[in-house]
Every structure is written in C-alpha cells, then in structure tokens.
C-alpha cells in the first residue's frame, strides 16, 4: 500500500545540514495499522510527511498503491493526495469555521456536488460521534472533540490511507484511549490503512499491528508488534518496551536476594499464563520462586505479561528450572549484575 524505498531527507539550514532521514525503507500493507515510534527528533514527522510529499525526499522513492508519487506532476499529486487523509497533533482546523464547515469546505474545494457534501458531513460526523457539535466553533470544543473533527475531515474524502502525526500526543490519557478506539474502528470498519507516528508506547501497544522504531533518522528495528515487544533487539527498542513495565525495585533488596539465588524476568505471551508454570517449577525442582513484581498488559488483542521473579535455590537447580520454563514458551532473561545499577530491570 505504502512503500518507501531508500528515502533520505537532508535539510539545509544556516547552521548546516540536518540528515533527518537516512536511507529509510518501509512497507505498509493494506488494511494494517503501522506505527512508527521514536524519541523527539528521530525524524518521525519528516518520515510521515514524505508519504504525501509534504516533504520532498532528497533521495529515494515513495509509492502509494503502486503509483510512484515522487514522479507525479503537481496536478496528479493533488489527485493522489485526496486518497491519503492526514491528522495532526495540533488538529489544524479553521478557527473561523464551524465544525460542519470545517468538514464541508475541503469537500467543496475538492469539487464535490452539494448534496453529496451534506451527506458526507453528516455521515462522518456521526461516525466520529460529534453530530451534536455541528454548529460549534473549534474554540468551543475540547482537544478530543477537535481531533474527532479533524478525523472526520480526513475520512470524509473517503481515503484509502490515514496518516497520523502524533494525533494523541496533546490529549490526556482517557481521551487518548478514546481517540485510539476511534482509529481502530475506522481501520476495522472502513478498511482504512493507518500509518501513525508516536513517541508513546501505549499507542503502539493498543492499536498497531506492526511497528518500526526510529532513531537518528534511521529505522533501527521493525516487525510485528508482538515480536518487537517480546524480543526487542536494539537498545532504543528495549527502552521503549521497558517504559510500559514499571519494575522498580530497591537496589538493596536486589543485592540481598542475589546472595540466595537469581533474579530473572519472565515474559508470557498469549494464553501462556505465568502463575501455574511457576507453581510447577516449585514442585518439580528444588527452587522457590518469589514474584517481586509483575505486569500483564495487552498488545492489541494478545495478552502479554512480564514477571520479575527471584528464584531461590542452588545454581544447578535454577538452571534446570529455567530450561523447563523455556520449554513452556516462557521467555527468560537473567538480570546481569551491572544492570542492577540501573534500578529499572527487565
């Protein structure tokens, strides 16, 4: 659906060159929700803006639905852009227009007939759930409501793709949840492919099928959300994954516990529930598991849990227990001694 091939973007400023994107290749498949996560300045916005050519890549090609946008004439590009909706962190609505007008004006400027415009405005206002605010001005709406208007405006063009540039970053946690639910609904019910960028792990966790992690203008890791969460390889990815688990244990306690055994982190995916397996460990081996901390969370629709466990016992028994756990499809990671200094362990 969306294919970026070896895309680079260099900004030339007075202070020098900024390489915002370095040879990025990415493919978003039809019907999926693809998330790009990265810290501030990683180049996420630049990346998403190259998809509809708000930013012209310095090198590389951008194709949407098999059409190479980088080669189109301005007129043809305009036509292609109508099939790509976009929403923003700052909503970007007309302040002097009502909610209704904010959706109808772009449709009118795109040359739709009047009756059709009215139909669409009403239809999409109801899909995003703000029919009652039709005559309000943006200044009279909450952030969440403004984002709903922006979403309605984007999907009223009935695009195949929706690009979301930090659409929930300006919203509080509850509103974020609600907007993410709406995006999920749009993806599932209207079949719109979504490419979103964010710096919040919970966004990826809640609605994305696949994820790419960006750092310094490069995609450093990319794959299904489940794979990336359960087996993060790159340092940045690990930091993001850890950000959703808050295992903060006192250092003194860790040092003390290590004298009598090992501390390991166990990850469970899907129906592999942690507790019974741990119970078996204590029965089968001469090892006493002691759960220090644990979180079970949801990856889109798969449960995913992580436990920090103290295994008390002899080294040989612990090794056998770990082997057993791995046979049960539990991901076991030991905590190295020098990690303890970081306090937050995984």
């Amino acid at each position: 659906m969306i294919k970026l091939q070896n895309v680079s973007k260099t900004f030339v400023t007075k202070k020098g060159k900024v390489e915002a994107l370095k040879n990025v290749s990415l493919e978003v498949k039809k019907g999926e929700i693809f998330g790009v996560i990265g810290y501030s300045g990683a180049g996420k916005s630049t990346l998403i803006r190259t998809v509809n050519l708000l930013e012209k890549p310095s090198e590389g090609t951008v194709s949407v639905n098999g059409t190479e946008l980088t080669k189109l004439s301005p007129n043809k590009l305009s036509a292609s852009r109508k099939k790509i909706g976009m929403i923003f962190q700052g909503f970007n609505l007309l302040k002097t227009a009502t909610v209704y007008e904010n959706i109808s004006i772009p449709l009118r400027l795109s040359g739709l007939p009047k009756a059709e415009i009215d139909n669409r405005v009403k239809k999409y206002l109801s899909i995003v759930g703000i029919e009652s605010k039709s005559d309000s001005y943006p200044s009279q709406l909450s952030g969440g409501q403004k984002q709903r208007v922006a979403i309605a405006r984007a999907i009223a063009h009935e695009p195949e793709i929706l690009l979301s540039d930090e659409a929930t970053s300006a919203l509080d946690p509850d509103t974020t949840e609600a907007i993410l639910d709406l995006l999920l609904k749009i993806n599932e019910e209207l079949g719109i492919t979504i490419l979103l960028i964010t710096h919040e792990m919970k966004v990826i966790q809640k609605i994305c099928d696949r994820v790419a992690v960006m750092e310094n203008g490069e995609v450093v890791e990319n794959g299904s959300v489940l794979d990336v969460f359960t087996a993060p390889r790159h340092e940045t990815t690990k930091r993001f994954v850890n950000s959703i688990f808050h295992h903060q244990l006192p250092e003194a306690l860790l040092t003390k516990l290590k004298e009598t055994g090992s501390i390991v982190s166990l990850s469970f995916v899907d129906n592999t529930s942690g507790e019974p397996t741990l119970a078996l460990v204590s029965k089968k081996f001469n090892v006493f598991p002691n759960i220090l901390s644990g979180t079970i969370t949801q990856l889109k629709d798969v449960p995913y849990g992580k436990l920090i466990v103290h295994l008390q016992g002899d080294d040989s028994e612990i090794d056998r227990a770990v082997e057993f756990l791995e046979q049960q499809h539990v991901l076991v990671e030991g905590v190295k001694r020098n990690d303890v200094k970081n306090k937050r362990i995984s």
Binding site: L77, S78, R81, K82, P106, L109, S110
Partner: peptide
C-alpha cells in the same frame, strides 16, 4: 494564520490558489 492549517489543506490535495 497557523501554517499547520495550510499544510492540512495541502495534504488534502487542494490547489494553492484555492
């Protein structure tokens, strides 16, 4: 006028004149 709004309209494929 906020540049973001202009950009949103550009992203919708609306010509500069309009």
């Amino acid at each position: 006028v906020d540049r973001g709004v202009l950009e949103a309209y550009e992203a919708m494929g609306i010509p500069t004149k309009k």
